[in-house]
Nucleic acid binder design. Structure first.
Lengths: 254, 254
DNA sequence: CGCTCGTTTGACTGGTGTCAAGCGCAGTGG
DNA sequence: CCACTGCGCTTGACACCAGTCAAACGAGCG
């Protein structure tokens, strides 16, 4: 197993120099905004793009990064750890709309708005990088490459939410959970964070329940069945996909 | 009752001169792109904005305006009638993501993409106006007002889809249907298409079922109950909200 | 008249929620 | 070292919302 898969985040243990060694940088929005790795010298760069300042922060699991409705001058990019976006329901329940993995950006549409109805919370201990909205807007309207990249991200997010809505409306508990696990596996795999179907898995059953619109009790039943069928191994800290074909079969992927 | 509420669309009956008399123009994207009514002279305008050409079309109910996945060079604005956006599920079912009312634009994110996974279908007989994506892109990147207006539309659409996901995951059949009816009433009301809680209602039970993730049988049961409780009157062509407070109570609005 | 479309109703089934109890584990403090 | 506590997970019994299947009705229409 590579070091990536075993990564356990200890944000306060180290004096990390954030972006210099970031393996994600060449693939996500950071590379575009701050330059590729080989060009990277200092946190504040001037690269033909307008200058965009960043500020790195950490959060402990369960901590709210952004409370829906409150004005905020910055958006964030996840450096390490997982977060989730959700909206609160009047009865105290919540619907998790997406899980943010390392390299993901928090709501891209928020760039042009003071506030968003969507809250963001750390799932695991978290390291993230905030970017000033105003500076980002300036870059967006001045550099066509950045604008295109953002539209690409918007479109993908939009597709994901629409897919979520369709899942919640039309799929069974088994299918929803299988699809969630497969989606996470694919997205982490693309970032090189999966080894032999195994990866660090900070979600509690409550997260899965909030994301799939189910109760924690039923999620427990379904994952229990999946384990008994040797489809997955889930021990609280790590998830292993034992039978990818079987899971895909359940998920009824189109 | 005003003429608006009784409007029955007969797209082929008349030689309409599309935008000259459009009551929606001053409130939606058309006014911004083509100019306000008093300035409107010809279908092709030059107004300080780049020139954007439009083309008016009609469709019969049930007709597909856009088939998801296929490349398309234009987006559309609904002039009269209702449409819906949906995604197809592998089992043949579909999830309706939104209903497009007069003045609404079809997926705004599609402006920067060749194709979208979301299909669009006419709910009632329809009159709509297509706008070339490339010309629109040019205006968007050159005129800041238009860009801002589009971001506003994007944000609202995003909020609506997220709200839909949360509804599908967490609300009962009664609540979902009540919320759908209230949402339509509010949006039509803002366009002046509602008189005393009454408006033309082209949706079949199947549409409501596809939008709420329910079966047509259950939708029939729930609307039947609402009728018996004198909350609504629904005779197939028109919907009347008889007890707005009662409906809102059921919908459990936040 | 016969057809289709949209709707309604009834009987039954089943997936998921609710309530409740209990277990294992990791801290934490004695 | 041990008891206590809280959190997360599991399991069982039961209830209920919504799906499925089936039949019938009315309206519109050729």
């Amino acid at each position: 197993l590579s070091a990536n898969c075993q990564e356990v985040l200890k944000p306060r243990d180290e004096q990390w120099s954030p972006c210099l060694a970031c393996a994600l940088r060449n693939d996500n929005i950071c590379g575009l905004l701050f330059g590729e790795n080989e060009q990277c010298i200092a946190p504040n760069l001037q690269l033909g793009l307008a200058q965009v300042s960043q500020s790195h922060r950490t959060a402990l699991r369960r901590q709210t990064i952004y409370r829906g409705g409150q004005p905020s001058k910055s958006i964030a990019v996840i450096c390490a750890g997982w977060a989730c976006t959700y909206i609160k329901l009047p009865d105290g329940d919540r619907q998790i709309l997406s899980f943010l993995l390392p390299g993901d950006m928090t709501s891209a549409t928020a760039v042009f708005q003071d506030s968003s109805p969507v809250s963001i919370e750390a799932v695991s201990d978290l390291r993230y990088c905030t970017i000033d909205k105003a500076e980002l807007r300036a870059v967006l309207t001045s550099d066509r490459r950045v604008l295109d990249a953002f539209f690409e991200i918007w479109a993908r997010k939009k597709d994901a939410v629409e897919q979520l809505a369709s899942d919640l409306g039309h799929r069974t508990a088994e299918q929803r959970i299988a699809r969630l696990l497969l989606d996470l596996t694919a997205r982490l795999g693309a970032r090189g964070l999966v080894c032999d179907g195994r990866f660090a898995f900070p979600l509690r059953l409550q997260h899965i329940a909030d994301a799939t619109g189910l109760t924690i009790v039923h999620v427990s039943r379904v994952t229990g069945t999946m384990r008994k069928l040797s489809l997955i191994e889930l021990d609280g800290r790590f998830l292993t996909i034992l039978n990818l074909g079987g899971l895909k079969n359940i998920s009824n992927a189109d």
